[in-house]
Design a protein around this nucleic acid. Structure first.
Length: 561
RNA sequence: GGCGACGUAGCUCAGAGGCAGAGCGGGCGCUUCAUAAGCGCUAGGUCGUUGGUUCGAAUCCAUCCGUCGCCA
């Protein structure tokens, strides 16, 4: 029976383009995992969407003098285009600004309130008389009480890094109109997180297969004790409360956005004409939920969202939260404001998707932060992708195509130890990559696949079909035929990582159809290579990049856009 | 300030008590089917610092230095 794999991926704020840090943080890993499970014959539902609410979007909208949904639609469209070009295969990438999402959020809010897991209380908030409204934390500016920086914001001081409460600011002022806000009581709703401290500790107790960084930081967070948190704000952009008399309030984005995982599954089911189908992925032992996120998001997915699911009842808790650490860029952290970033749409305008997928796979920040540099990108492309793998494909297929009438060689000499060893190794590599992917060890998986490519290069050198063909055509037929069988397996194990070039190789090997429909099965794949079957004239899978590319790209970093 | 990580070869990173590793780059050689690609051999490191535990520490503990993140 196929397993049901639900894959939730972090929801990007729709207030700017995606950079490579986002891809390395969660999207690539999630996609590799989804593609792998689909090839294994499991049912996969991978969802995410644009986070439409939250102050970053309203701030950007204010800056541009447009409504927030203009910003949302612009970047949401760009995200969809990016996924398409980079090969990130969501089953649904929606937004949190849909009627469906609002209904699901309001249902959860209402039920948790009925169960007394959500309760009203008052809190002191900044109110601006000039704007006649309560101010989001970020909209209050003033002098930082720690470092005396005069331009500290109500949520944080950018100068000294302290996080702040607006009421701590000296000489607070409204960042919109400049008036001095007063602080007044406002009624808000709170999530009773404190009730879930022990249930969460019990739940996480047996998660010994979680990545250490995720498990440790979750336990640390829980040991610090859980406090109830406000889940509403005085805003007009966001999901309204399902209650009368709260028209000026909205459900706070951290509570509402994670519900997107559920609402997206519901939306997906409706779009597919099977309104109940989401339950297959959310209920029962045969369904497992994975949440791919960056490490900054860990507590929301290992604590808050599980607490909300526990409170609601009847839905599956996360099975695993394989959070990645961070990617740095030329040894510095990504910074949108300083334009210290490689924007994914820009990358895709200039280069192919698979080289980036390769680099971010082999250097994925799985266990610790890793670094992206353009020098490294060019080097890995030229010395590993092109030289080891692309060249292996090219040397085998081109030589075969020219010398064996464009067909899989026939009348090969009987296999000997060398062939048995290489094919055994191929079978083992398929099992190893399988195991790595099943356990979200993406870097180890692609390394293993490339080790097989190297081994195949060694095999070819030992058999030297370019020599053999002069005296013993059957000998050359044997070694090339064997190498082709290995390529047929490599295209499969690499397909989750390098889907575009695997598809191309699939075609070179004479097959039509989608490489992702190929079986992850050594014997079946070997059996599919039939002597005399037509091959197609191969072209290069990857192209070498000039090293000046690295210099030129690096020079553009940090230049104001 | 509190918490959590990270620091290993020129570069990017594995390893987590038992002889310091891989890929790439460097040097030497072989090869020529292939995108000057492939294969073999080789050099190189006091495993950030200082102490401690241990028969034995890159690994465990403490300290300091540096980097990063989260929280206040």
């Amino acid at each position: 029976m196929p397993e049901r794999i639900f894959i939730g991926v972090a929801w990007p704020y729709a207030n700017g383009p995606l950079h490579m840090g986002h891809i390395a943080g969660c999207y690539l890993a999630a996609d590799i995992f989804a593609r792998y499970h689909r090839m294994k014959g499991n049912d996969v539902l991978m969802v995410s969407g644009s986070d439409a609410h939250g102050t970053p979007i309203t701030i950007r909208a204010d800056q541009e003098g447009v409504e927030p949904d203009v910003i949302l639609e612009r970047y949401h469209a760009q995200f969809l285009d990016t996924w398409d070009r980079l090969g990130i295969t969501f089953d649904l990438f929606t937004t949190t600004h849909t009627d469906n999402h609002r209904r699901v959020v309001q249902d959860i809010f209402q039920r948790l309130k009925d169960l007394d897991y959500i309760y009203p209380d008052t809190m002191l908030l900044a109110h601006c008389a000039g704007c006649t409204r309560f101010l989001p934390d970020r909209y209050v500016e003033g002098v930082c009480p720690h470092c005396r920086n005069e331009r500290a914001r109500g949520d944080q001081c950018d100068n000294c890094g302290h996080t702040l409460d607006p009421i701590e600011l000296v000489e607070p002022r409204c960042s919109i109109c400049g008036e001095t806000p007063d602080f007044r009581d406002s009624e808000h709703f709170f999530l009773r997180l404190s009730a879930f401290e022990q249930p969460l500790l019990d739940w996480i107790g047996d998660k010994d297969f979680w990545r250490p960084n995720v498990a440790n930081s979750t336990r640390g967070f829980l040991q610090g004790g859980l406090k109830d948190r406000a889940i509403t704000r005085d805003l007009t952009w966001g999901v309204p409360l399902p209650l009368d008399g709260y028209d000026e309030k909205r459900i706070y984005v951290w509570f509402e956005a994670v519900i997107g995982y559920l609402s997206a599954a519901v939306e997906w089911a409706e779009l597919n004409g099977k309104p109940e189908a989401w339950e297959d992925f959310w209920k029962g032992d045969n369904a497992r939920s994975y949440y791919f996120i960056g490490k900054d998001n860990i507590p929301f997915h290992s604590i808050i969202w599980p607490a909300m699911i526990m409170a609601y009842g009847g839905l599956n808790l996360p099975y695993d939260v394989p959070a990645n650490e961070f990617l740095s860029l030329e040894s510095r952290k990504f910074s949108t404001s300083q334009n210290w970033a490689v924007w994914v749409p820009d990358y895709l305008d200039r280069y192919d998707p698979d080289p980036l997928r390769y680099l971010l796979s082999i250097n994925m920040p799985e266990t610790g932060d890793t670094d992206f540099s353009w020098t490294e990108f060019v080097r890995r492309n030229n010395d590993e992708l092109v030289a080891t793998y692309g060249n292996l494909v090219n040397r085998v297929l081109r030589f075969t195509y020219r010398n064996f009438d464009g067909q899989v060689p026939v009348e090969a000499a009987p296999p000997e130890d060398a062939e048995a060893a290489l094919l055994d190794s191929t079978r083992q590599a398929m099992a190893d990559v399988d195991d790595c992917l099943a356990h979200t060890r993406f870097r180890a998986g692609i390394s293993r696949a490339f080790a097989l490519a190297q081994e195949t290069n060694r095999y070819l050198d030992s058999r030297a079909p370019w020599q053999a063909i002069k005296t013993d055509r059957a000998d050359a037929a044997r070694s090339l035929g064997t190498a082709i069988q290995v390529l047929n397996c490599l295209k499969v194990v690499l397909a989750p990582y390098l889907p575009f070039t695997s598809q191309k190789l699939h075609g070179f090997l004479g097959f039509d159809g989608d490489v992702s429909s190929e079986p992850w099965d050594f014997d079946a794949l070997v059996g599919n290579i039939k002597p005399g079957a037509p091959l197609r004239n191969p072209s290069a899978l990857y192209t070498k990049l000039d090293t000046v590319v690295a210099e030129q790209e690096a020079e553009q970093l940090g230049v104001p856009a």
